[in-house]
Amino acid sequence: MTSARSNARHCWVAVRAILLLTAVLGIVYPFAITIVGQVGFSAQANGSLVSENGTVIGSALIGQSFTDSDGAPLPEWFQSRPSAAGAGYDAAASSGSNWGPENHDLISAISERRSSIAAFEGASAESIPADALTASASGLDPQISPAYARLQVPRVAAARGLSESQVHALVESKLAARDLGYLGEPTVNVLQLNLALTHLGG
């Protein structure tokens, strides 16, 4: 067999192989998994949606902005981390800032956030935790550190006319420990915390 004919034969086998594999791996496999997911784990497979009075208000896994239309933080809500996804928590444009450690834009953003958060919370600049000053990898981080949640308690309580101890107790009840006790970090889910807040009244 000549080399050219041999190459052609190899390619013809490859074409048939790819087409068959595409049917199995590209169509049967994902659709079978979709059926398993929809039947067996419907809530997770559809995005762990959170509803209030029958209306979907978000996903427990996707962070939200709690700001007014100009991006100014609303004092009656616990605030999420800074976000680099679109204009902030744009779930159709997940992204980190990708700013490097010596990038001047990042350095000035951190300084600016520190002073504006300190003013907003009425707290000292040194008390602000790192997650409040930095953007997450996805831009959709649904969680904040327990330290950042606690920092926001007095301001939220004041804005809602609730007692600090009441709001503090709510935060403590919403703390999520590390997975299996030792994986990752302890967190507070901001959407679920804010949703619970609306049930406190005020």
Binding site: P101, I110, R114, P129, S136, Q143, G184, E185
Partner: peptide, 23 residues
């Protein structure tokens, strides 16, 4: 180390809260 991580208090830029630094 580095200007921005020092300023923020930890190298959390581009990291998710649930993972932290270790994960």
């Amino acid at each position: 180390t580095g200007t921005a991580p020092q300023l923020a208090g930890a190298a959390m830029e581009g990291k998710e809260t649930r993972f932290g630094i270790g994960a």
